[in-house]
């Protein structure tokens, strides 16, 4: 299920607002072309729904969780690693809560952004025999972006080169920093050299 983009993704939605939920449903089915298999306004039956409906992606508003469980949604509901967990956000939510999600959709996302974000997950989803909940290796795309960053390209230049929005470039950069734990460009340069993404001559 990882790479094949043609099969219709099956989505389960957990969203407290009826209006937002209905709106999401119509966008995801009519515009994006994914299938919304179930939706609920709270997560009380999530565990059963997981078993009965077997979604590929759970779209989840983190605010429905009580505060102490907000950072461990995946483990709290025992969500298997092969199911992607995506946040649906339209109010301020802390970075450390969002960091557990495979992607973050906001209500202002346009079609391209939604598609990019949802497609972005497929690549980083772990192969099914891995028991790890999250694949932390950099994806192909992230490696490409990283290469541009350490060669000194601006976000705008990177966006133009790869035909993605600046916003997406920033998201990739955030993920790169989160995964590697390296924030400075010179630190990332060392990472890129060690992983042969660039050669020493590229930066001399």
């Amino acid at each position: 299920m990882q790479v094949d983009g043609k099969s219709k993704k099956r989505i389960l939605l957990i969203e407290p607002s009826l209006m937002v939920g209905k709106g999401f449903a119509s966008v995801i089915e009519d515009v994006i072309g994914y299938q919304l298999i179930a939706s609920a306004q709270n997560a009380s039956r999530l565990s059963e729904q997981l078993l009965s409906s077997r979604p590929d992606i759970i779209v989840f508003n983190p605010l429905i969780m009580s505060f102490q469980h907000r950072t461990s949604i995946r483990s709290f509901f025992n969500i298997p690693a092969e199911i992607a967990l995506v946040a649906l956000v339209y109010t301020f939510v802390d970075e450390w809560i969002l960091s557990q999600f495979d992607a973050i959709l906001t209500v202002n996302d346009d079609q391209t952004q939604m598609v990019n974000k949802l497609n972005g997950i497929k690549k980083s989803l772990p192969v099914s025999d891995k028991s790890k909940s999250e694949n932390e290796e950099l994806s192909e795309r992230e490696n490409e972006i990283l290469e541009c960053v350490v060669k000194g390209m601006t976000n705008k230049e990177i966006a133009e080169k790869h035909f993605i929005s600046i916003h997406t470039v920033i998201t990739h950069r955030k993920n790169i920093v989160r995964k590697t734990g390296i924030k400075s460009v010179s630190g990332l340069t060392v990472y890129a050299l060690l992983n042969s993404l660039i050669t020493y001559e590229d930066i001399e």
Binding site: T180, G181, I182, K183, S184, S186, G187, V190, Y191, L194, N195
Partner: peptide, 19 residues
């Protein structure tokens, strides 16, 4: 701020990526 960031980066490079 910068000094702290680079030091964290250095630790991560050494912990995670130096072969």
């Amino acid at each position: 701020a910068n000094i702290e960031i680079k030091l964290t980066d250095l630790k991560n490079i050494i912990i995670k990526y130096i072969p």
